[in-house]
């Protein structure tokens, strides 16, 4: 073998130290974005799996928590005033603190999604074009009002008091819904969640899809992260956008192919282990007194929120 080593591999003639100051290398935004997204998915999974088992919510039976989630989502959607949404927010915050969840990470995620899916999407409705009312923030002045089909654009376009109130209420609604969902997700191990959903008669096909997605999103996010590291290990200079695009397309095809192969393997493994079309779960525990008590407490609080 030693004789077949190409001579260039034996050539040690190189600079002894780096030539610095040739400028900075930028990893293309899209590559960094893919890696970041994979990281977010994995981080979410890890936090979910490793959430402290000693908090208040972690000790409650999964069935109680799933019912709590459904009940509170309905309450949050029914409340019409901003103030009552604030009360619910304070109550959920107390539950998060009692459950010893990492508060900053928790609310960073809630506020990020709440900002996008609550505030930004609802923001145009604050304009007097959509919500009539008392103008408090004029934005544009037109020469005359316009009429188009069923739409009326007034001469002065701006935000109304009623519109802003509506946006704030909707944003709080989204934030509260997300908080309740994340609270349950972060405090309930996945198998327990599946058991609870099964008890609630969620169709088996739906549970199979959730189970497979849960496992394979994590596996493929790890593949994506490895792909990124492999690229990084061979990146000697900055690449042009054409090369980056080609790399991304190639890797997308690779992940797609790998996903297909893995799906077939998983299905064969499931068939090989006697899978028909139903999920049979074992180990349903009896509800403890503490579970009944906690459930009653959460239910009573929910009723109170409905009344105020």
């Amino acid at each position: 073998m030693a004789n077949s080593i190409p001579p260039f591999l034996l050539d040690p003639a190189r600079r002894a130290s780096p030539v610095q100051g040739k400028g900075k290398v930028k990893m293309p935004f899209i590559e960094k974005g893919i890696n970041h997204l994979a990281g977010v998915i994995k981080r979410g999974y890890v936090y979910w799996e490793l959430s402290s088992p000693n908090g208040f919510f972690q000790k409650i039976d999964g069935r109680v928590k799933v019912l709590f989630l459904l009940f509170y989502i309905i309450i949050i959607s029914l409340k019409k005033t901003f103030v009552s949404e604030i009360y619910i927010w304070i109550f959920i915050l107390a539950l998060v603190l009692l459950s010893r969840l990492p508060i900053l990470t928790f609310y960073r995620r809630v506020i990020f999604f709440g900002f996008i899916f609550g505030f930004l999407i609802a923001l145009p409705s604050a304009l007097n074009v959509i919500t009539k009312g008392e103008m408090i923030l004029p934005l544009v002045k037109l020469s005359k009002p316009y009429h188009f089909w069923v739409y009326h654009i007034p001469a002065e376009v701006g935000m109304t008091k009623e519109g802003i109130y509506g946006v704030m209420r909707l944003t709080m609604r989204v934030i509260n819904s997300l908080s309740v969902s994340f609270l349950v997700l972060y405090t309930t191990p996945f198998p327990e969640m599946m058991r609870a959903l099964k008890v609630l008669r969620i169709p088996d096909s739906f549970l199979i899809i959730i189970t497979l997605c849960y496992k394979y999103i994590f596996i493929f996010s790890r593949s994506v992260e490895d792909i990124y590291l492999a690229k990084k290990s061979r990146m000697i200079r900055e690449e042009g956008s054409k090369e980056t695009r080609e790399w991304i397309v190639g890797r997308l095809a690779f992940v797609f192919r790998k996903t297909q192969l893995r799906c077939e393997e998983v299905f064969k493994a499931m068939i090989g282990r006697g899978f028909s079309d139903t999920i049979r779960l074992s180990g349903f525990k009896r509800m403890r007194t503490a579970d009944w008590f906690s459930g009653a407490l959460l239910f009573s609080a929910g009723l109170l929120f409905l009344l105020i």
């Binding site: 780096p18 610095q20 100051g21 040739k22 290398v25 930028k26 492999a230 290990s233 200079r237 190639g250």
Partner: peptide
């Protein structure tokens, strides 16, 4: 430190990494 072009080139041409999963490493046609 590897954001510096000179240093990145110096390092990457001297240190090669072979991944356990060859699939993730091979991306050319």
């Amino acid at each position: 430190s590897l954001r510096d072009r000179g240093r990145l080139k110096f390092f990457r041409e001297r240190v090669g990494y072979v991944f356990q999963d060859s699939d993730v490493q091979l991306f050319c046609p």
